[in-house]
Amino acid sequence: MLTVEADPARVEIRLSAGELICPDCAGLLCRWGWARSRVLRDATGGLMAVRPRRTRCVSCGVSHVLLPVFALVRRADMAEVIGAALAAKATGAGVRVIAERLGRPVETVRGWLRRFAARAETVRRFFTVLLVDAGVDPAPPGTARTVFADAVAAVVGAWWSMTSRWPAVGTVSPWLAACAVTGGILLAPAWPAKKINKSRP
């Protein structure tokens, strides 16, 4: 799985130009069909059909699905919707309040929060390292009330740090940036991410 920008036309242009590289061996990626179509829900409950491009590395032969930056692996809601739920939980909101605010089933929101909580310390460490590595003059966030809140603060802090080095990152939300650097697996069973996405969106 490799995270790319939201615009599929731009992804095709980058593929043709040889700008997308394999996250395993740094070889060039070429077109190799399409992955299964998905339907994602946005913040208003609107639906968006997505059919990710499938690619194959010309060097190692491994195939990779190019997941749009707004999508998380195995989730039906866009990353910013899930990120809003995580941020609300970090400030102390309860699951029912969050679910009502976002217009999502309580069990769906509870699943997001439980999955994130189960790996909160790993997420905190990953994004704190990214914050320090990416920043021009990094300042790690202070300790929050909970490990969950610490992890959310690290995600946001890493985003701020990346914007100091790459200002264009500031045009997207912290949750889209989190998708980009984890390859969309923020809430997937495959956590932790082994490597930062080499083909920045």
Rank of each mutant, 00 (worst) to 15 (best):
V81R: 05
L15Q: 02
F70Q: 10
L187W: 00
R119A: 12
V181M: 02
W191A: 08
A71Y: 01
W159A: 06
F126Y: 10
T3S: 15
P167G: 03
V147H: 12
P8Q: 01
S161E: 00
I13R: 15
P8S: 05
T146Y: 08
G111S: 13
S161K: 04
A188Q: 02
F127R: 05
V97D: 15
C179D: 09
T91L: 13
M162P: 01
E19L: 14
A139S: 14
V106N: 09
L40Y: 12
V155I: 13
V136H: 10
R75H: 12
E100R: 15
P201F: 04
C57S: 02
A90L: 07
E80M: 10
R96P: 01
A168Y: 11
K195L: 13
A139N: 12
V106E: 15
I185P: 04
L86E: 00
A158I: 00
A190S: 15
D133T: 10
A118P: 08
G83C: 01
C22R: 04
A9C: 11
F127I: 00
P174A: 05
V73H: 10
E80W: 12
G170E: 06
A90V: 05
G142I: 06
A154I: 00
S199T: 03
W191S: 00
P167Y: 01
V132M: 07
P201L: 00
G18H: 02
G46M: 06
V155N: 06
L113P: 00
A79G: 07
S164R: 08
A117K: 09
D150G: 01
V62L: 13
G103P: 05
V129Q: 13
V106L: 06
T55M: 03
W160A: 10
T182L: 05
A26H: 11
A84N: 06
W166K: 09
V181F: 01
K198T: 14
V155E: 07
V65K: 07
L29H: 03
P189F: 04
G92L: 00
W112C: 04
S16Q: 14
P138S: 02
E100Q: 13
P138W: 03
